[in-house]
Write a protein that binds this DNA or RNA. Structure first.
Lengths: 249, 249
DNA sequence: CGGGCCTTTGATTACCCTCAATTTTCGTGG
DNA sequence: CCACGAAAATTGAGGGTAATCAAAGGCCCG
């Protein structure tokens, strides 16, 4: 398998591609070009920023898989999200500490933008600020869905739902199809996102496989009976479409 | 008991008070005054907007308790948050359906602002747009904490954590002290926020009471041994301070 | 080819849910 | 002010889901 490099050389290219699909005017483009941006590469399992750091940057994932999580004193952690290409990380209040960690899972490249510079630009290009709000709203939609997942769905449904969500997001980012997608997550990482143990995740994956709904093996998620899986998980992918720039202007 | 009316006649007054503590310049104030705002009252247990509505308004809670939740086809629901005075609800993408419901719990008054008008204002007053982003970041901090709660804390700790969080937020909003606060939530509502059954919430509350940590009875939360409770819940209230305007400009 | 991480399976335990029933509280109207 | 009914709180018993403990097998990489 393996294909599609899905790398952008420029932030503008990334913003104009799926899933963001921004449409800028000349002033916006000028503003974006004036931003101090660096494209950074991270090896697998490397921390981008850490819980407790006073980070002053905003990140837009360009390629690879990462995760945003919160470490607990107990040693457990809760993964909030797995940002993919086009997903933003670290949009936050200035002058406030981070309450989460952003780390790579696979090799990953991200655009890093100085928070200060971004703030300055927002002051000059209000349309961009609308776009940033849209991105924040998109991320919130993910969080709300994950919260619903943990609070009111059992382990089997929860696992199914996450596999479907990441499938749609991978497809949006040009990294998958209706049939399936490459997923580098370990069962431990799934467990930390699903509020389960890796052992139980393993059993749920087996169950889903034995019911001929979806097979997750060897780093590949293969939808066998996607309609059945959608029905099981009560999956509504519309929430994932939120947050695009498309409707602006 | 009963006291402190905590009502504002104007949005400006609300924004400048705790917990938001905004500081505006003349242009901002002018912009805010130009907004088409109405102060609406809702009786207890009334829907402000519904899942599926194409709502075009943003809300800022002025007084009373409400809740934001998502209904599931199974008949369950997941409560995302209990917004109090000064908390915003409904900041979202334009032209997108809601994926949650906002309803009152007690009698409640909220400022309703047309999304369209707000967008227009943001285009003219970038400082305000920064403020709105701050408010969104504040809400996200709540969501992240709730997600961590559901994913990686057991029922007792989870319950303790929520009682502490709402205590701090009530205090921020001028509705409580270190000793306790009035809390109109039923055990069913707590359960829907905590991802538990009301029956189990009842047992956890008894446990917390018997351990002389906190008593929740007759609509009053009374902190008996707050340090002990904070220790049990690993509660760090700093995340609640996020999202204020204070550091801007 | 060895070692470490990941996956898989089994047995047991514990947490939380479900079902059922009683008591208490609270709002409403007599 | 009391009576009534509904909603909420409380308690008990039993069951199911997911965690814990333990160990074996597979895969990848040096």
């Amino acid at each position: 398998m393996g294909f599609m490099s899905n790398e952008s050389k420029s932030l503008l290219g990334l913003l104009e591609a799926a899933p963001i699909k921004a449409r800028f005017n000349d002033a916006d483009i000028k503003a974006i070009h004036s931003l101090q941006i660096s494209l950074k590469r991270y090896p697998p399992h490397t921390v981008v920023y850490n819980q407790g750091d006073a980070v002053r940057s905003v990140y837009i994932t360009n390629s690879g898989w990462g995760c945003v999580y919160r470490d607990l004193p107990s040693g457990d952690r809760q993964i909030m999200d797995f940002p993919l290409r086009g997903d933003t990380v670290g949009l936050r209040m200035p002058a406030v500490f981070n309450y989460n960690t952003y780390a790579s899972i696979t090799e990953m490249s991200v655009f890093e933008i100085s928070q200060h510079a971004l703030n300055a630009i927002v002051l000059r290009s209000p349309y961009l600020s609308n776009g940033i709000m849209a991105l924040m709203a998109r991320q919130r939609a993910f969080l709300i869905e994950h919260l619903t997942n943990l609070g009111r769905r059992n382990a089997l449904v929860r696992t199914a739902h996450l596999l479907l969500e990441m499938g749609v997001r991978a497809k949006h980012s040009g990294m998958g199809t209706e049939k399936g997608y490459s997923c580098p997550l370990t069962q431990y990482e799934l467990a930390d996102a699903l509020g389960l143990t890796a052992i139980h995740v393993n059993r749920m994956l087996r169950e889903l496989r034995e019911q001929n709904l979806v097979a997750f093996r060897y780093g590949e998620v293969e939808f066998i009976n996607r309609p059945g899986l959608v029905r099981l998980a009560n999956f509504d992918e519309n929430y994932l479409a939120m947050g695009m720039f498309t409707d602006f202007k």
